[in-house]
Design a protein around this nucleic acid. Structure first.
Lengths: 318, 318
DNA sequence: CCACTAATACTCAGACTGAGCATTAGTGCC
DNA sequence: GGCACTAATGCTCAGTCTGAGTATTAGTGG
């Protein structure tokens, strides 16, 4: 009975913060083996997972987390962490990781420098459709994806995920896109996991991949987090956990655009936002843009109620 | 190192099927200790959780599952299964359970009799707002809830969850409502867990609870499943995994109403459904209702594509 | 006082939604 | 065969929401 391998529960956290430039995630690890912050779950010490996550993130990075939410539990054999990473585990152990997303709010330069933060689009260049660079990333991938899509089922999946053939781009399908790229062997993790499976690490055709890899299945966890966050913006007032206490509507829009990787229609965004009752104007103005000064807003009391609704995302054409 | 308690991963499955009457879930256990089907995860034998779930449900009940989706991983100390349930585990072990929802499609009488199925509203009478009985269940709970809601924060949570004070009832907030009732001590599990914590099982004031309890935290898992399913109906064509291959629009509407526990506006339901392109008419008619015969429909090819959208739910007034 | 830049205001048409009224095609009875 | 009855299906109308523009305003820096 003791011969049965133990199950180790790892907790991984996608800690998201918004700096001036856009969404950033907290990383840990050494160059070449970068990953999300993680810790293993102590069955004695911790009453709930969520408390454990708050605990280890704070002790590892000094950050106190605000909003925390469980994402998904990942247990696929062959995609888990290289065993060496997990401290006291042994070869026979099975690592299961429970992924969490945590919002660290808006951070200042000091806090930013205290941790290792990275723009999340470094790992998912194709998810940023605000810039030419992101659109180019997709153009780079498409030929290979199309070559891989030999069946109509695959073709349809590619079309839906990447918004081809008149399908619209769904910003929250981050995981679908990543899994497609993984299956098609177009992200580095796929090659790594296959090599592990075959034991003989055939070097294979050296190719350059689009987007940086992460340790273990952490890029998959990050994709899950991005997708969840992007979806949740639409039905829960969750942006405000990333925005500063006072903001102009343009700043809020920039934040939402950065998170969702799309451009929004300015006037319509402001219209639905004001109607929603989620924000209320402080009297103050903010005059540092060189144009007409903007009204500063705060989230309203109703936006804090459990069950408050989210934002609508009026896309800008093109 | 062997003194550290092991972590046991339990898998629980909410297997949903639609019989003629409405949504039913598969149960296991003996009278007085009814729960969801569950099995423990074998770290060696199973490559992924999902495969493990399919495996143990099929071996325990003979059912082949269709759609399977991970719900949530529950790990709170104090709400987990009584240790005796888990077979070979010992007292010191920590049980973590990964909940899944599975759709078993539409079942016939034979299949129905082969397993122990129960209308899910037995456990959540207040979730069924189609009938007077369900509305009465809420009336029974409200006085106690209001008595419990001593702070404005609690009052606001109650109002949002149960659609008080002009808030609208959100059919997918099943878990919020259940957790509120748990916190307020209005479901039997709350009393049970408290007694466990205090070791001295004080009998307390014997009260009658609304809705039947389940073993461990299985009612919470079921609530999560119901909420997920109800929410997902709106954005994925998931009803069709519960509906028979051919159905009339009224039958489909009845199914949706049963799942969501609300009444829908007939003409508007049919209108949005036909516009959505999710169904297509077979030529056949179905004339057994005593009225004008209804057209039989099937789900369309596009409804099977990954990324297809869900149904809109036009509520009927009152 | 002027040019410039964002922010904010206003408008309009088309699509979608909630509600209700009207028509139709079966069944079963006389 | 005709009639009452019952669902299913069809149609209409007003109000709201959304996409897309055009227009105006209040600062800043010469």
């Amino acid at each position: 009975m003791n011969a049965t391998p133990r199950v180790i529960i790892g907790l991984s956290a996608v800690v998201v913060a918004a700096s001036g430039k856009g969404p950033e995630v907290l990383l840990s690890g050494s160059p070449g083996a970068i990953g999300l912050p993680f810790g293993s779950f102590d069955p004695i010490g911790h009453r709930t997972f969520e408390l454990a996550v708050r605990d280890f993130v704070t002790s590892q990075t000094g950050f106190a987390l605000g909003y925390v939410e469980q994402l998904y539990t990942f247990g696929d054999k062959g995609r888990e962490a290289p065993v060496a990473d997990m401290g006291q585990s042994s070869d026979a152990d099975r690592v299961v990781s429970v992924g969490y997303i945590a919002l660290a709010g808006s951070i200042d330069e000091g806090q930013r420098r205290a941790g290792v933060w990275a723009d999340w689009y470094r790992f998912f260049p194709w998810e940023d459709r605000r810039s030419e660079a992101g659109l180019r990333a997709i153009d780079l991938l498409l030929p290979d994806l199309k070559a891989w899509a030999t069946t109509t089922e695959r073709q349809s999946r590619v079309a839906m995920a990447f918004g081809l053939h008149g399908q619209s781009w769904q910003e929250s399908q981050v995981l679908d896109r990543f899994e497609l790229l993984y299956e098609a062997g177009l992200v580095q993790e796929a090659q790594r996991d296959r090599a592990k499976g075959q034991a003989s690490a055939a070097p294979g055709a050296e190719r350059t991949f689009v987007g940086e890899p992460l340790v273990s299945d952490h890029r998959r966890i990050l994709a899950t987090a991005m997708g969840r966050l992007r979806a949740k913006i639409r039905y829960r007032p969750i942006v405000f956990d990333l925005a500063p206490a006072r903001f102009t509507l343009s700043e809020l829009q920039d934040l939402v655009e950065a998170l969702c990787g799309v451009k929004l229609h300015k006037q319509n965004f402001r219209r639905t936002l004001e109607r929603s009752g989620l924000v209320e104007s402080t009297g103050a103005l903010h005059a540092e843009t060189g144009g007409r000064p903007a009204m500063l807003f705060t989230r309203s009391a109703t936006s804090r109620q459990a069950g408050a609704s989210g934002l609508s995302l009026p896309l800008a054409k093109r």
